[in-house]
Design a protein around this nucleic acid. Sequence first.
RNA 1: GGGGCGGUAGUUGAGUUGGUUACAACAACGGCCUGUCACGCCGUAGGUCACGGGUUCGAGUCCCGUCCGCCUCGCCA
Length: 601
Amino acid sequence: MSEFLNGFKRTHTCGALRGSDIGKTVRLVGWVQDYRNLGGFLFIVMRDRYGITQIHVDQASPLFDQASKIRAEWVIGVEGEVISRGTNVNKKLPTGEIEVEARELRIFNRAETTPFAIHDDVDASELLRLKYRYLDLRRPCLNRNIIMRSQITRIIRRVLEANDFLDLETPVLGKSTPEGARDYLVPSRVQPGKFYALPQSPQLFKQLYMVSGFDRYYQIARCFRDEDLRLDRQPEFTQIDMEMSFIEPDDIQNICEEMISTIFKEVLNIDLPRPFKRITWDESMDRFGVDAPDIRFGMELNDITEILRGSECKLFQAVFAEKQPTVRAIAVPASVKLSRKDIESSLCDVAKTYGAKTLIWTKVANGTLDAGIAKQLTDDEKKAIIDLLKPEEGGTILMVADKLNTARNALGRVRKEIAVRNNWVPKNMTKAEDVGLTWVTDFPMFEWSDEDNRWYAMHHPFTSPRSCDWPAFERGELDKVYAQAYDLVLNGIELGGGSIRIHNIDVQKKVFAALGIGDEEARAKFSFLLDALSFGAPPHGGLAFGLDRMVMLLTGADSLRDVIAFPKTNKATDMMTEAPGDVDQKQLDELYIKTVLPDAE
RNA sequence: GGGGCGGUAGUUGAGUUGGUUACAACAACGGCCUGUCACGCCGUAGGUCACGGGUUCGAGUCCCGUCCGCCUCGCCA
């Protein structure tokens, strides 16, 4: 019942034929999207990666009996004549002017009834779709995402290679390094008890390529981080990894802008203004509350700490009793109708999710503040708030009073939530205004962890501080040291980030020391890097983009899973292969591995 | 590790206060149909109510536990 191709080669794809092809004899191959048997004749709709074409078989045809048995998702070939559909043109299809009158029919394979229909408006659960991923990928919209992913990497390679970048590989079996994400480990058979780690990124290897003189490196590299998943986070993901020697931040940013704007032009036909916007980390945190700001709309944060410092209100007094107290506010325009319930339950929950104690609110009425917190404010305080925020009559003012980081972040998240709920920010980008691109520069070099009572590198331990902050670094004022680090942010999502690296061994040692990594530990973990820096390392720096996120944003997909062909679930399982799975005891024995599971109750 | 939502026919969902034979649509199967393109019409078949306990005369429904999926906080240099 199924047969090999036996020379039945297609002359066209299922998306190719037009009215101008009428009269031609053609061969098509593909899957049966749909069939409609009208009694006197029947239609078969064939699908391949390029489109769909309707086949017509008349009852008088010797093929009719065979054709009437064909079902959805069978793999068939059709030879026939391209004919006009006359008055029955389907304007929804590029091939809608024509159909193919079948003269010969091949059935290459039959198909069981699929667990779900292969349509764009799929109604099957994601669980089922992931189990039968190869069927899910047949759906045109998912098919299109994967194809667009390939288009994007092709553009990236073209732009980078035109700029003399070399595509260089790095090892996958590497060494576990401290700091950063949890590693995926691979046991060594030939060295009992020792482990490789899969790369979280090719960071150190690309720096070593610079030391080797390769000058301009890129790689579309798979990276692995054993952390919990999110809709925009998978345990294995792909980075567009780049590194350059003898450059400053502007140089790498310019190359990236060329790459990104070429992608937007060729994939979405959007012309992006260049250079891209730039905002410092301090400014971003101040105006938007977050380090990945969505700059497509206003409603920025305001600092009203000083206005309320002496407030009689117990709520504010409690905050001012803590360290790093701040009060931030946004003015929500009157066009956004917020009921007390909207604020006190749903928006307040957003603020609480990000650690704020509560969301404080008041309304603007008759030129003053009314309702909510207003009755606990003095007239002077109200006036000062209005003078600063300049809110619309009938609008709402939302505030968070908390520790600095908590207040900014929580209110920043509320700001974005309001924008999403009111459709201020389109998911699908169709014009330049839909594209909120900005560099965020000058990140702090270090961040303090109360939990571990130590400093961590905000970017990574190989990032160079700004030379103007060197005196502060020498004085040990780590909170005043900024890094030569930069992120590229698209619509409130970090697309990528990078930095100028440390190329001086003494600086590297001092940064390690600041991070509590002593000489001995640094030697043990990074001797190869320290050695390399001592043998003539050029000034260098680079950047890495998250390819998966980039494709997700460009396709307008709802999830990273819609742009990764074979993704993992929230528990890092592949529903199709059921990885991770058990292995034979023999395999474990060879690796000197013994598993210790928690007691099952 | 925490919080929220969910799991009923192949699929997507409904299922009231615990009470007859668990319902609908789509898909499948059989039949009819000469212009469909979400074809239409008639008919047939299809159920481990996620899993394991418990309460009860009686559990899809109530209780406890487990598993799985999705969202999310922490985490992700």
